[in-house]
Each structure stands twice: as structure tokens, then as C-alpha cells.
Amino acid sequence: MKNIAIIPARGGSKRLPDKNILLLNGIPMIAYSIMYAQQNPEIIDAIFVSTDDEKIKEIAIKYGAKVIDRPTAISGDFEPTVSALKHCLEVINDKKIENVILLQPTNPLRPENLLKEAFDIYQNKSCDSLFTVTRNQHKFGKIINDKFVPFNYEIGQRSQDLEPIYFENGLLYISKTAAVLKETIITKNAFPFEVNHPFSTVDIDTQEDFDYAEYLLKKSKK
């Protein structure tokens, strides 16, 4: 194995219970990331789901992924994702693995050619990692002493004249194995791959997020 995909999926979810296995247009949410990885066999050699939940485990196996049982010690609400990735690599223990592709189950919708385009850039750039970002078009500010203080613009400035500012959208991460083993996903020389697509705004954590994802999915199929 040279490149592996890891999908970290805990069982606990407070704001949207069992969100990783909710049926999104009739398919368990976690299955979307598994199927996306399966659509890229020329890049991904194996697909692993890291979980502490039996229902997630059953669904992952049903859809063709291998499962790594995640210890309770690294399954808490505040545990960083990289802990699960590092644990997977230690369990697999294959020194031939060069790259880890992180697919978050809470980002079930991805542009079809995203991985192919991103991986091509990743291979041709002198970087240890790549992650996807999206340009923001909003006017941000802070509230200080009950007053609104613009952050990325000046009062009266047109939105189209804003200095470009971006957010990490969570669609895709690619990292060198060595970086993950050092508990890093986004390295200092990480390449920010820009994705401006409706799917880049979907990161499911609430019922409203889920409903919006379902709407976009049905709309895209039309």
C-alpha cells in the first residue's frame, strides 16, 4: 500500500445524535466518504474507518471499508483527529504507506474530480500536505465594547472589492505519513487547494446542516 484513505467516525454526537449513520438520501452518511474513496482506485490503495461504535463498524464493513477499532482514550469530544490517524497507522504498521488521505464523514458531498486534481498538485508541489479551502465573500467584524469593529473590510466597501480571505472547508486533506506520525495533518508548507463549489459549505454538525446537505444532493442529481 502506498496511499490510504482514513475516515475517522466516532459514535458520540451531542448536537446531532448518530449523525455519521443517519440516512442522507437513503444512504448512511459515512458511506458517502467510503464510496468517494472507492471511486478513486488509481490513487487510493486501501480504505480504513476508525471508529469506537459498533453500528458504524457494521456499515463500514458493509460498504467495503476496513475497520480500525479506536480506543476509548482517543475517542473523546476534544481529541484531535490526528490522534485517530496516527493510531490507524500504528495498527496497520506498513512502512510502505507514504500518504494519508483524510476524508471526514461530516463532509459527505465532494466534487467528483476533487481528489484527482488535488492529488496531482500534491505530487507536483514541494509540500508535505495539502488541504482544501474556500474563498469567503462575507464582511466579518468583531463586537468590542458593544460596538461593531470591521475585521476584513472598511465601512462602505463593496463586497466584490474585499481582500480575499479563505476558510478551511474540511473536504479533503492529504498528508505525508511521517507528518501524521508526528501528530500533524496540516504542515508548515501545506498547500491550500482552493475549492469554490456549493459542496464546500457543507460540514454537518446540526439538523440544519443535514437538511441543507440533503437539499444540495437532490438538486445536484436533477
Rank of each mutant, 00 (worst) to 15 (best):
E117L: 08
K221V: 03
I43R: 02
P71H: 12
D128W: 00
I97G: 01
D146L: 10
F167R: 01
N196D: 14
E42D: 14
K96W: 02
M1S: 12
S126E: 15
I61M: 13
P17H: 06
N25G: 04
E163A: 07
K142P: 00
F191Y: 15
K66Q: 15
I155Y: 07
E154M: 10
P17F: 09
Q123G: 15
A31K: 07
N113M: 14
T72D: 13
D120Q: 09
Q137M: 04
I59A: 01
R10K: 12
I43Y: 05
I165D: 09
Q38M: 13
H197C: 03
S175H: 04
I185C: 10
E98S: 13
T106D: 15
I92W: 04
A5F: 01
P17R: 04
D77P: 10
Y63K: 02
L171F: 06
T72F: 10
D120E: 13
D45N: 15
G76M: 02
P192Q: 05
I185S: 04
M29P: 07
Y153A: 03
Q137L: 05
A118K: 01
Q123D: 11
D146V: 01
N169Y: 05
K57M: 15
I27H: 10
P198C: 10
S220Y: 11
D77C: 04
E183V: 00
I165C: 05
K218C: 09
I186M: 07
A118Q: 03
M1I: 14
F210R: 05
S200G: 02
A213G: 04
H87P: 02
F167D: 07
T187K: 03
A190M: 01
K219V: 08
E79W: 00
Q157R: 02
Y36S: 00
I186G: 09
D53E: 09
K19I: 09
G26T: 09
E163V: 12
D45F: 08
V91D: 08
D205K: 11
L22Q: 13
A60K: 05
K95G: 00
M35W: 09
D53L: 02
L109N: 00
I56H: 08
R10V: 06
L102P: 03
F151A: 10
S126R: 07
D146S: 10
H197K: 04
F167E: 07
N169T: 07
Y36W: 12
T72Q: 14
L216F: 13
A46R: 10
I30T: 11
Q157D: 09
V49M: 08
